Computed example of a mutant assay.
Amino acid sequence: MSEPETRKVGDRGQVTLPKRLREAFDIHGGDEVTIREAGDKIVIEKPTSRADLAEGYRRRAEHHRELADEMAGSSREANASLGDAPGWEE
Rank of each mutant, 00 (worst) to 15 (best):
D69C: 02
E45W: 01
T48E: 15
Y57K: 13
R12C: 04
A80G: 04
H63T: 12
R22G: 01
G13E: 07
I42N: 01
G30P: 00
R76W: 04
V43N: 11
E23M: 10
I44N: 03
L17D: 02
A24V: 04
P86N: 00
V43R: 07
G29K: 13
N79H: 09
R65V: 09
S74L: 15
T48I: 15
L82W: 04
S74Q: 15
R22K: 14
L53S: 12
H28Y: 13
M1K: 13
I44A: 05
G29E: 15
A78K: 10
I35E: 07
R36W: 09
I42E: 03
M71Y: 13
S81G: 01
E23C: 04
G29H: 12
G13Q: 04
I42M: 12
E66D: 10
R7D: 09
E3N: 11
T34W: 10
R65E: 12
A72M: 06
G87S: 01
G87I: 00
P4A: 11
R50H: 08
G10R: 13
I27R: 05
E62S: 07
E37V: 09
G87F: 02
E77Q: 09
L67R: 11
R60V: 02
F25P: 06
I44K: 05
E32K: 13
T6E: 11
E62L: 09
M71K: 13
I35T: 10
L82N: 08
R58C: 03
P4H: 04
G10N: 13
D26A: 14
Y57F: 14
A61K: 09
V9W: 04
I35P: 02
E62P: 04
E3V: 09
G10V: 01
E89W: 00
E37W: 04
E77A: 06
E62A: 13
G30F: 01
L53C: 06
P86I: 00
A54P: 03
D26P: 01
K8F: 08
A80N: 07
V33P: 08
E23L: 14
D31M: 11
G56V: 03
E70L: 08
Q14F: 07
P4R: 07
V33S: 06
K19W: 00
T34Q: 14
V33N: 06
E55I: 03
M1S: 15
S81L: 12
A85T: 04
G87C: 02
A38H: 10
H63E: 15
S2E: 14
P4T: 06
A78V: 02
R7N: 01
A54W: 08
A51W: 03
